[in-house]
Design a protein around this nucleic acid. Sequence first.
DNA 1: TACAACATACCAACTGGTCGGTATGTTGTA
DNA 2: TACAACATACCGACCAGTTGGTATGTTGTA
Lengths: 216, 216
Amino acid sequence: MNTIRTLPGKAGDARSKLLDAAVTLVRKQGFSATSVDQLCTMAGVTKGAFFHHFTSKDALGAAAADHWTATSSVLFMEADYNRHEDPLDRYLGYLDFREEIATGEVAEFTCYAGTSLQECYSSSDAIRDAAYRSITGHSARLAEDLDQAIAQYGAPQGVTGMSLGLYTQTALQGAFILAKGQGDAAPVHDAIAHLRRYILLLFNRDEKLAKKEPDQ
Amino acid sequence: MNTIRTLPGKAGDARSKLLDAAVTLVRKQGFSATSVDQLCTMAGVTKGAFFHHFTSKDALGAAAADHWTATSSVLFMEADYNRHEDPLDRYLGYLDFREEIATGEVAEFTCYAGTSLQECYSSSDAIRDAAYRSITGHSARLAEDLDQAIAQYGAPQGVTGMSLGLYTQTALQGAFILAKGQGDAAPVHDAIAHLRRYILLLFNRDEKLAKKEPDQ
DNA sequence: TACAACATACCAACTGGTCGGTATGTTGTA
DNA sequence: TACAACATACCGACCAGTTGGTATGTTGTA
């Protein structure tokens, strides 16, 4: 996808510095509210460098979505939860991992793809497509484990791995919005708790869930 | 909250026309990408009128969130699903209703509060607070039915009406983002199907869910 | 009930500043 | 010496917000 080959700290540095700056600033301020000058300042480059590497601000926004995809796919691919034998354990481990990394400032754990998709879906086809690809691609990787879990444990009619993978991202994206309202990661933890409970119930693995009886 | 008393079509019209324009344009383009001039053009008023009614663009954004709260709370309060005797049926009827109104252009069924919260949470305290209030307030009304359902049917430990109400909004907000990527309401329908399944499983009302056995 | 004093609701024109983008350098390296 | 990788200087368009004004109420008082 990305054919650029550069030595870190040398030539080509400006491009990746601008992409990093975009991910950081857009997650905090949104795309429109982030100016080209601001991106250049944070990246430590000039406007000339910006328009040397990107034909427009939109083009940077789309490239940053691909950059985000690449960065985060490495993060999740290398995480420990992938080592579990059981596909369901891998999925549950993914949820644990997402909880772990949801700490600190809100802008640091929210999603570039979701943020820019929300804001730019109608103004820039390139950004919308790249951001949506990021989310569906991530869902597809989850779907592999979930399909295996369905084959192994069964599931209600109509439930597919991809559908559950997309729903997982849906809940996480929504949780990021609530987190922005509240100012902390609590909504992410809450959403993951519900997701976990849903999955355990779906696969009849709910023996661990303490039940409360109806009131008399 | 709002002490303005005006006759429709006469004086004071400008204010509500601007609020309507804000809801429409911000849902389509986002807050930053919508200019004051554009809002005035759509509302059919001048910039003077704008700054007569609102101290700043941010102030309009916050007022539009309150306007959104008022508008949508009427919509849901008057809907038929509220007539169900059973609290769980009321909640399930709410989900059906949300599916019904998720049609047409994406910008027409997405949420002003979620959109502006995502974009403005760090740049405007007033917008963030008003938008977050809109979502939590809506959740709180759902929570009433859900608390009654929990009292009636029981639920796993740790599951509260408010937690489920917030989670419902979480899933819907996330679904709106996916819908923006895809260009239609399918992700909303998918998310609601999962929500419905989760609730039926939670309350042991899953007899209607067709089960698929594990592969041999 | 008449009228002065004031408030509200709006308008057209304008301002200083910022925006994305461009035109034209300079410089290091192969 | 040719070209990629930058830097500098600048442009016109657009931005949120201001100004000085008018038209149409509303209200207190004699």
